[in-house]
Design a protein around this nucleic acid. Structure first.
Lengths: 186, 186
DNA sequence: TTGCGCGGAGAACGATCGTTCTCTACTATA
DNA sequence: TATAGTAGAGAACGATCGTTCTCCGCGCAA
């Protein structure tokens, strides 16, 4: 039962899971060491500081998110369906037992004022998401003003699902997006 | 230049401002003591623990939020305008220089896993907001399915405005709400 | 005036945490 | 086999923080 992953991957994935589940500050580096099975000395040789590790974790999570979103979109044929696939993607995610909201929003709220590098990664990820939605809206031939509206629905669904625990939240947001698209004549 | 507020009010307001601006864990009780001008011994005599203080802060912030929302609604005449007034209220808030997202969402992400009492207050406030929206939607004679959609828009506007810094976010959300109301024949 | 109790300022305590250091054991080369 | 270099386990260090304690000074009753 050897672990195929590199020590670096084990550290980033362990830190990601712990930070997401408990918050960044609630997780000591010793917990990361234990979960990853990598000595502290190697962790610090690889990342330098907890803040550096956090930035790496956020960057990796952004890649995972982007890939999942792209895969969901690939299953759709029309741009309109690609937009709605965002909410199907959220729906699946909200049903995972470990779901605890958007890690970027959570991290921004917790350490944004204290860690400019972490806040920057969060802003970049959210900007990239808005750009992605804007691209799909343009491809669908819908008016550009729809893009921020649909992005707001996606963001709101994440925080609402996290706090209320209502797993039907993604479907409500999807229905609203459909209404917006329909009203725009898309 | 005497301070009319009671020591308790000074502590709660100072803690609220500090927690909101920097996050809960980043604020030491000594910073609260200094900002409020109340000795630590009195703070602990009044609140018992930092967690108790946080719960009180959240409850007070909820009352402030409810009052602001009600005041914004009172300026509107029709139920439809009362719904849209939510977004005007958000618009004003987003333009305040101290705006840093929704304190309830931020607190839930930061200390939710560690503090059940704080998480409970957050859930209660969000539930109350959804109930408020549902009431307005019912009064407007619009279908009930609009209520969660509009609530999701309001939540998404808050996190989007916080992270992107785009102060026009509330207007985008308001426009989406108008479209949803129009499409429902309201 | 004298003693007494209360409240404030700040030190102190114990725990946690990020980070570094020490010591040991192993590997690889000559 | 002898040895130099490396890596791991865990202790140690310094700082911070929540919480409590100590000590001092002030106001008030007799």
């Amino acid at each position: 039962m050897t672990d195929e992953r590199t020590p670096r991957e084990r550290v980033v994935e362990a830190a990601d899971e712990l930070f997401y589940a408990r918050g960044v500050q609630a997780v000591g580096m010793d917990a990361v060491r234990e979960a990853a099975g990598v000595p502290l000395k190697r962790i610090y040789a690889m990342f330098g500081s907890k803040e550096d590790l956090l930035v790496t974790v956020l960057q990796q999570r952004r890649e995972t998110w982007d890939a999942g979103l792209a895969a969901a979109g690939d299953r759709a044929t029309t741009p309109r369906e690609q937009i709605l696939a965002i909410f199907d993607f959220l729906d699946d995610w909200f049903h995972e037992p470990t779901f605890r909201g958007c890690a970027f929003i959570n991290t921004f709220g917790e350490v944004g004022p204290a860690s400019a590098p972490a806040a920057d990664v969060v802003r970049e990820q959210k900007q990239a998401f808005r750009d992605h939605v804007a691209r799909l809206v343009a491809e669908a031939g819908a008016p550009a003003r729809l893009a921020p509206q649909i992005a707001i629905l996606a963001e709101g669904a994440q925080t609402t699902a996290a706090i209320s625990g209502d797993t039907s939240t993604a479907r409500h947001a999807r229905a609203a997006a459909e209404t917006l698209l329909d009203a725009a004549g898309g």
